[in-house]
Design a protein around this nucleic acid. Sequence first.
DNA 1: TCCGTTGGTTATAGGTTCTAACCAAAGCGA
DNA 2: TCGCTTTGGTTAGAACCTATAACCAACGGA
Lengths: 216, 216
Amino acid sequence: MAQSSRERYRAQVRADIKGHAWEQIATAGVSALSLNAIAKQVGMSGPALYRYFASRDELITELIRDGYRSLADAVQAAAGTDLLELAHVIRDWARADPQRYFLLYGTPVPGYHAPADTTAISREVMVVLIEACAGTDGPPTPFDAHLEAHRDWIDGHPATAATLHRALSFWTRLHGVLSLELAGHFAGMGFDPALLVAEEVIPDQHRRSGITGSSL
Amino acid sequence: MAQSSRERYRAQVRADIKGHAWEQIATAGVSALSLNAIAKQVGMSGPALYRYFASRDELITELIRDGYRSLADAVQAAAGTDLLELAHVIRDWARADPQRYFLLYGTPVPGYHAPADTTAISREVMVVLIEACAGTDGPPTPFDAHLEAHRDWIDGHPATAATLHRALSFWTRLHGVLSLELAGHFAGMGFDPALLVAEEVIPDQHRRSGITGSSL
DNA sequence: TCCGTTGGTTATAGGTTCTAACCAAAGCGA
DNA sequence: TCGCTTTGGTTAGAACCTATAACCAACGGA
């Protein structure tokens, strides 16, 4: 609880290191992250940094953890709003630091396995999404039935399989547009990705309005 | 046309180098690609490789180009089939070598700009998708109207804005599921991503069948 | 005050990309 | 066949990187 002077100093230096690490990642990507460069920036030379992080991988793992935490905080702060608002919150969070988004959801490094707690934080995000999807079920689909048999991952959450399907779909569709947008694959096409996100995320409403009305 | 002996040798060595490079990328990711290791594998030591590729970045750029070409070939070989078949062709192509997929559509490196011809190959893929989407238009949406004003990127293709929208949506949805699947973000959830892809890619059919029928 | 823990240093090993300098061999025209 | 030019290879080395080892100063609690 009450930190000693040394613990406080240590925590502050670690935060300082992580701050400069985020800077480097934001400007040059995680592959260009250099412990030597960070050490110089925080005012110590080279190997001193290994007193605070055992290795480059451990520092990156810590950053990934903090990244998930930051995303979960942003999403939970918007809990209770509708899917469109949630999509914009997540998109804004990602666009504030694209390389941070890609650190979580970009190219995986083949050997690496995320620590267990990051998947727990991912679950927090998923729960907010599921909550927002509750009650927006459309007609049942074959995948809903399939999901009914594979819902252990959300383990005990009282949502229909159709709702889980909607949440999963929200996640994959948003990620689809967002990651292509942030990676620059829409460069040259002049359209506004936000508008595409809007229709991807609340899919049936627009298309079906005026056809089936509210007869569901 | 007729290559000289030297040109043939050079082309063969370059292909050999690229082959070993793909091996390394498939097993350890592009960030672990080592020119030294490749050189040893092809039997020459270190800097000799620079006679064939000016830099590591140039080799990677060449691999990216070949990757796009390979994807476009796979997609064009399936041209004329329906969207579900196209989705499976692309998914199978990606799953055959996930790191190759991520080389094209994964985390972008901040400084890097793809050469112009790769975007031209991307366009080839897009044209096949658009062709497959033709005639599957649903009711018009606001984004269709927006796309009508921003269709320069496909420049002269005689497709409705609604069709372009469907093709764009096909691309982003497939990429959304596929990249999360390949990155391992579905690990632990037991569902079959192929089923999710199927419903994402032919979105309205399943949901609407039995409601609006074929009244469109 | 003493002494262990902690946080810093420099030196060094082994890895990387890439350049420089040098050399051998292959191809080609006279 | 001779000789020159281009090409493909070598080794050496500069400038980075991660990470470890060895050493030392300074801080904190008994």
